[in-house]
Design a protein around this nucleic acid. Structure first.
Lengths: 234, 234
DNA sequence: AAAAATAAATGTTTATTTGACACTAATTAT
DNA sequence: ATAATTAGTGTCAAATAAACATTTATTTTT
């Protein structure tokens, strides 16, 4: 028995905005699309939701298929469904944004997949409304990260304070006073100092830290502000 | 020419979580569903996206049709698309939350439509996953309102400080120190004192204020915090 | 080997904001 | 007149933020 009038022929798609951090700036992972229309153009990772599949499951499956990435932080972000956002069919796309530590997956990505990182400031022309999707994801990321310490998802197990600072600077496109930032971060108890130092990026070397997972889980729903109050403006 | 394999038969729906504020507590607007399945059960305002219609346009149309409401603040919130969230068809629903001033639309709602306000704390059993939708909308509202002064959308043109305080208390389910709250709000420059007083709700009467729309537009994208730092926890 | 350069880490000081609390003011009910 | 109620203003100590200075560890240069 059919309950609803089936007057639509809508395809449900997923697009993933994958944010990565290379230690200096924020990047997004793009792929050369391998099917029509717009084959061979740059696009977000995307695919269709199968008939027996939940959107979130589809997002993880697509991410896995196209990049080999698993167990990454991912969050639903927004839906794009203008009638003519794609030329030939009515495709409604649910966007997810993912946060990944680029180091951790470096080998996976470079070896087997046709994905490429681009600076968030400067990526190639994308198909359809994928620019808007990125903008929406960025907005959402900024909002979420203003309240919850999710940006740690973008960092390796071991990270340095200058790295986190650079990350926040990249996400909000601001310049932080590293001294005040560092003090605030340390006093939060969110990170634990290790003995080892990172000698790659400076002469003196910077101590590695790791997340205090106990506090992280507690604070993930709390109201830590690492940002100066003006940083969400415009 | 068909570009994509059409192996899905997905219906795209909209559900609206309509928040209202009655001066004391937060409420949501529910409706007795007038079609199968689940006819006559309480549900969110919902409907289907037409084949030539953008989701946002559909949301406004549905809101208008079911409640007569127009020009209200509305924001996309999240998508529910589990394969079996409805029994007979695969319906993917995009949720929007709306903020309305209940006074302003009181006559519209009571006269012509079968919608009813319920306290957010205590509403009837709803169909499908509408409970989850409300929870998601509430979370989103809290997050957004922690950063931007959108809660003013829930208030009439003229409002009193005790009203705003009650509103914040309702949204976050907390108790505020009215004195500190008031000081912070006044110093923001966001509200302008009027001469008139509201004598309805107290013996002494409370001064009315109106929004400073100039500052409101500026601050809508800024980082005002009216909340104590612990209020987003759990 | 000493000096300069670099970036990390820690320290200092002042202004601002917060949070906790007390009081005064305007009105109505008794 | 007095009590009761809620609005609105005031005070103060503690915490936080913002601005700025110095020290430390290391490498590079001379």
């Amino acid at each position: 028995m059919e309950y609803y009038k089936k007057d639509s022929d809508i395809l449900l798609a997923i697009d993933c905005i994958i944010f990565g951090f290379n230690g200096e700036s924020l990047e997004i992972l793009l792929i050369k699309r391998d099917f029509e229309p717009e084959r061979n153009k740059w696009s977000l990772m995307g695919g269709f939701v199968q008939s027996d599949e939940a959107p979130e499951a589809a997002a993880y499956r697509i991410l896995k298929q196209l990049t080999g990435l698993e167990n990454v932080y991912m969050e639903q972000c927004s839906v794009f469904g203008e009638p003519n956002r794609e030329p030939n069919d009515r495709v409604v796309s649910i966007c997810y944004f993912a946060l990944i530590d680029t180091q951790k997956y470096k080998h996976i990505l470079s070896d087997n997949y046709e994905a490429k990182w681009f600076p968030l400031q400067q990526y190639p022309k994308l198909i359809f409304d994928h620019d808007q999707m990125i903008a929406a994801a960025q907005y959402r990321l900024r909002m979420k990260a203003a309240l919850y310490p999710i940006l740690f998802e973008l960092l390796p197990e071991k990270f340095t304070i200058p790295q986190i600072a650079a990350l926040y600077e990249g996400v909000y496109n601001i310049e932080l006073d590293k001294r005040n930032f560092s003090r605030k971060l340390l006093s939060s108890g969110l990170i634990i100092k290790l003995q080892e130092k990172d000698k790659e990026n400076s002469k003196k070397g910077a101590y590695y830290f790791k997340l205090n997972t106990a506090i992280y889980k507690e604070k993930i729903m709390s109201f830590l502000r690492y940002l100066p109050s003006w940083s969400l403006e415009t």
